[in-house]
Amino acid sequence: MKKHSHFLIAGLVLSALVFAFIILGWFWTPFDPMKMNGAVRESAPSLEHLMGTDKFGRDILSRVMKGSGFTLFVALGTVLIGTVAGTVIGALTGYFGGWLDEALMRIGDALSAFPSFLMALVLVSVFGAGRNHLLLALGIVFIPSYARIVRTEFARARNQNYVKSAKLMGASTARILFIHILPNIWPVLLSAITIGFNNAVLAEAAMSYLGIGVSPDEASLGYMLSDSQSYLAVTPWYALGSGLVIILLILGVGLIGEGLKRRDL
């Protein structure tokens, strides 16, 4: 257990830093992210502007802080929808089994073969632009993967002695499902959440990079990357700054996931 805990520690430290950076951006940024300043257009990273400025003289660090807030918001919302809905569906189908379980899992199997990213693209185009729609679309698309993991665990727990004895003692089904079994599958769920979170960040970034599901005033990191590409020759630091935050965010949570997995072995 001790051998690999440095993955977990590195992940926790990195994630804490990145989350602090992003959450700070919700309340405070060094400059107004929308304010154009003609005096400092296209300036390279300096002490005053740590990530430089863009074509309009806007401070990139401030924009990245603001933008990553949108990305984080969507990713957390997606994980919340996916986990809650997936856990409820997985718990019920796994514990009770039966034809509904069979049918849902068949459908889940069939759909899971298809790249979820493309599914989300189609859903977003139906829901329309805006980050709440994006959040909803990604959340729905990720439900089956959580449901599958949770279902397997509940189906296994159903026949274990602690569940049987809880039943004999007269515990209600809801109590057995969520007070007795759920805490036991927590480690599995947690590692699914870290993977799901990273997939959500990637999907959100990719989606807003493609310009689908975003409005320009909600400039998330992906949107900024796509914007930065037009000015790549002039202000390469714009792309670098936006990309760096995505990478660090995913790397941190990925390390936590890897650390958890190795600890469980």
Partner: peptide
């Protein structure tokens, strides 16, 4: 590997373009 898995392909693409 852990690092490479964290880099979105479209960002790699932008880096390569540059």
């Amino acid at each position: 590997g852990q690092f490479l898995m964290s880099v979105p392909p479209f960002f790699t693409g932008i880096l390569f373009t540059y």
